[in-house]
Design a protein around this nucleic acid. Structure first.
Lengths: 228, 228
DNA sequence: ACCTGAACACCGTTCAAGT
DNA sequence: ACCTGAACACCGTTCAAGT
């Protein structure tokens, strides 16, 4: 935070750019052209400036992506969570997912570090709290949070990338036959599923798995960590 | 497959490069300099050739990464799996994880598509089969596979990236204070955990969560998909 | 203090030409 | 058939200079 543009005195040239303006322009590019088009040069162009001017308001591209995430999380409506702990754990996890599901640049962030915006910390706090109320020890609760987070991160990266490839304006994937996204044909014993595959894999995949994971984690409360 | 170098007649110049040689050189770069150094140009240099020569043996960089994955999965020892279905599901999932955990370029593959090497299909088949033997319907079994896969993919991307950043020869991250990997200080109520955090989050994170997830998924056998 | 231009050190990939 | 060189269309970032 502490935007680098700060009016301490009135020396020097008045700023034409601001972090605000940069983030807004970045969001416009993200919306209109997709995350793969967001480069420092393109962003500068959008602002009728030069790539280097941006570095006065943002440390580097990673920070830019993080600031975008932060901003997005801030703006996201903060729903009231159930009080029943298991429900709260599920609901908070779902919010975490939903916030990030709207961020197509999330993959780049995940790929750059395992970070979380401060504006989303309340969610993590709720998750861990709820897990403790469910009877997990603090250690188990933190661990449960991480398991849920891995699941969520995996679902997000894979879904975002699938959309990027399929909806992409690009030529059909024309992959080597030897490699393919898994389809029912790969599993002779599942031939009956042919045609339902997309439906099955597309159907709001996150929530059902989330509930199963939560139940599995809660059932292990008090289980010594190192058991076969 | 069907390597583009194939001796159909004997017209033309004898090949200096081969897919084999290219993949071996790529592995050397991966081992010695890390995945971020693997570029077509660097690879060509390693082979005392030009970047463009590579495109005679490999369609593009994505295919190269996939071929590397395929090769790795082929070479991986294929352990005998338990017959008890729940144990088999867990063991197969663990093998899937372990194979990929050794591939630092896996992030780039996941980021490029949701693909699986054919040499690893036996694992997926075992996972789905075992899930069915545990009493899940085929649809539920496929769904269970995907939940496990998301969890695994999330754990892998995040761990690989953490290693890339921490072990990286690069300068310290010097991030804006506003963003940080989650630490116990972010959770006042968990102050007691300070100092154990790394241990907790580093400890063979995958297997325990895997078992919890499997149990949660199996417990839902026959549960109608749209509940609560 | 804020911004610019040129440059550095890279990418993946295409295309026309050589042997 | 296999390989090369030059070029295209990009990247993120540094650095010295301008106002």
């Amino acid at each position: 935070m502490t935007p680098r543009t700060r009016r301490t005195g009135r020396t020097g040239r008045p700023p034409r750019l601001s972090q605000e303006a940069i983030l807004t322009a970045a969001e416009r590019i993200l919306d209109e052209d997709g995350p793969e088009k967001l480069s420092m040069r393109r962003l500068a162009q959008e602002l009728s400036s030069t790539a280097m001017a941006l570095y006065h308001h943002v440390r580097d591209k990673d920070e830019l992506l993080l600031l975008l995430l932060e901003r997005h999380a801030e703006q996201f409506p903060r729903p009231e969570l159930p009080t029943e702990p298991r429900e709260r754990l599920i609901a908070a996890s779902q919010v975490l997912h939903d916030i990030l599901a709207e961020c197509p640049w999330i993959v780049e962030v995940l790929a750059s570090d395992d970070l979380m915006a401060v504006s989303a910390l309340w969610i993590v706090e709720n998750m861990i709290d709820a897990a403790i109320e469910c009877g997990l020890s603090p250690e188990e609760a933190v661990y449960a949070y991480r398991v849920i987070w891995y699941y969520t991160a995996g679902e997000l990266t894979i879904r975002v990338n699938r959309e990027r490839h399929h909806a992409g304006l690009e030529r059909p994937p024309h992959r080597d036959k030897a490699f393919a996204a898994l389809t029912p044909e790969d599993f002779p014993r599942l031939a009956s599923l042919a045609g339902q595959w997309d439906e099955i894999t597309a159907r709001d995949t996150h929530r059902q798995g989330l509930m199963a994971i939560v139940d599995g984690l809660l059932a292990r409360a008090g289980t010594p960590r190192e058991r076969a």
